[in-house]
Design a protein around this nucleic acid. Structure first.
Lengths: 214, 214, 214, 214
DNA sequence: TATGAATGAGCATTCATTCAT
DNA sequence: CATGAATGAATGCTCATTCAT
């Protein structure tokens, strides 16, 4: 997405290989950014606040990242990466069909529970980040990989007769929306039992997708 | 939610009776705010830009509204009001149960289609607005009326045996999430057929909610 | 040179008609900029310092000017305008030839003496201002009107036989350079007698230009 | 001019004897500085950019030079030295009087042509560099040696009756200004024939200086 | 010798808000 | 009622310099 090399910057370039300590700093800053955005939202997550939370000077962020945009992009990359890495394999292990669908829902819920701040930051960035001309910087396009993963799951279930014949794209979008709304609801109510919610969701989507019995 | 009284003595207070021209100005400004937020997002919808779109001076906004916060609150109120006024009656006219659910989905989709900017502004404000201390200014709490309307619809359907015995809160949250994701998906793809999507959604939720056929 | 309208700015647009008090403020700021640049040079003439000298807040400058670039451009315009307005007519009054040349030199010197800061600022801006890509923002191109004025003076003198047959462009560039170096020399030595210098210069250029006497 | 000793104990001091490799590094850095300043101007010739052009790390510059100020001073010294070394002897070889003047003009032009970047850097530094208190770091004082050289040339010509009786200081300042303006004019127009210009200049100054013919 | 890392001051600019007219 | 003018805080960013390794 970003492509130009830094014209004058002092820090290491973007594609450059990075030292261990460089990577550690970047990770630390990304973490601080995640927490700050999760707590204060996109608008108020200034470099000053992020630096303060990381207990470093503002300049360090500029040194290690090309700018605020690159930092936020790395946050997005990191969060997406983590979820793909954690949830993906478990779902694929289930084979396809009804069990995979149920596993996806429950595992995503579990992931949300253990990475609350990350996902909060992700949604904040998605909602808030804009390009220079005012249009959203991130958007549905970035969900495409998720949708395609879900679709292939649905499609196989349909081919094997477990699932009825529905529009897989609509189902994917809907499932993602259902999970998002579950997360938002839980975030606002820390005592809420998200696992219970996820189990209800699994039942719902099972009914919504399965082939008409006998 | 807002509590402080206006700090300066100028302009009409909040609960004050308002002249006709005063109301017209407020409506004009609210409209400009809606369009600006829809186009540029929460962060970049500065009073300057809103005033520019309304073709008035920035000071006018401060005169008619207690501040940016009140303006945004009025946007929220207006958007919520419009949807309740337009969709609510049609749904209630359907009686309850399966027909009402289907109607709700299709009518919300229709409303989204004809009020794209308003809903865009609403989601932007929800995602972006924060209180002084950093916590979200709006949130799930504001969805409560919607949830309760859906719940009562679901509960009656259950009592009358049309719907199976599911958790009505989870179903309400999920339905809302499904509609939101549909809207977002359509917003990013102007050529997308949202009505088709809505019909698929209706079918899905029908299956997810109806009493097990025998 | 600048053409885009301010995208969001709060102040009056560039081509707009300006109120009296608006013009007064602009003039005041331009004056402060001139003095600041004359004293501190291009680099250190920050908006903060300029505002401080004008005894206003930094924001006022941004309000009245589109940005630092526009402010500096106005400085250039103003300084060039003043010199053209003051010196031009006096020279033209002399008819052409030897008298005009002498008058030009003496009048420019007089002008330099009474507008030291302005000319200092002008040279600083010329030397320091760069475009985004690093190339000079102002340059010889901006001297073109001056050169052409001198050239037409020389050319008429040649036609009338007062001046010998020299390259008018070289003579124009040289005369301008001679005046510039006189100014710089004087600036560094406040007690230096610039009028004397100017008279010597007039003698020199008279000899350098006049038709060989016989 | 510089007086403070280096603040930290690292790196070689200013008057210290320097190893061969140390000198090589300094020369390399000075060259990079010259090119960078010539291209980007004084303001934008940051240490980062200079280091980048020299393909070394920024720290190296700080190691070999006491700070940016010393680096720029060395640039000035080097450029001045080169011109004195190259032009001076040729002029002196001419004896004095009219031939020496002509030779000076033509040789300076030749030198400018082959050291465009150096002279560009020099003028940029002269115009841009300031001391802590805002006053110019370099100035007319630094031209003093040049003026004195020219003056002694003129004076001898006067004594021998070749030159008329003019103010030698004014003539020196004017000649230097004429050469500077020639350079600037050429810099902005790469295709311009500077040698031609120089020949015209020689003719002009010959006429301006020579004793009235019989 | 050389480097990468870090700092903190300073920069131009944008913003919501206030206020006299 | 409406405006234009002004404010001062905050933002992202660049820079010369320092310093441990």
């Amino acid at each position: 997405m970003r492509s130009e090399n830094r014209s004058t910057g002092q820090g290491p370039g973007e594609g450059k290989r990075r030292s261990f300590i460089e990577e550690a700093r970047r990770a630390q800053i990304i973490d601080a950014a995640v927490e700050t955005i999760a707590e204060f939202g996109y608008v108020d997550a200034s470099l000053a606040r992020i630096a303060q939370r990381a207990d470093i000077s503002k300049g360090v962020i500029s040194y290690h990242f090309d700018g605020k945009d690159e930092l936020l992009e790395q946050v997005v990359v990191q969060v997406y990466g983590a979820i793909a890495e954690e949830v993906g394999p478990k779902v694929r292990a289930r084979g396809n069909g009804r069990e995979a669908l149920r596993t996806h829902i429950l595992e995503v819920a579990r992931h949300m529970q253990s990475h609350r701040a990350r996902l909060l930051a992700l949604t904040a960035i998605f909602a808030g980040a804009r390009t220079r001309d005012g249009s959203p910087r991130y958007g549905q396009a970035d969900n495409e990989p998720i949708y395609q993963g879900l679709e292939s799951m649905f499609r196989r279930g349909q081919e094997e007769g477990e699932f009825r014949d529905f529009d897989v794209r609509v189902m994917a979008v809907t499932l993602q929306g259902a999970l998002d709304s579950m997360f938002s609801y839980w975030v606002a109510r820390p005592e809420y039992d998200m696992e219970d919610h996820a189990r209800e969701l699994a039942e719902m989507f099972d009914r919504a997708t399965r082939a008409s019995s006998r």
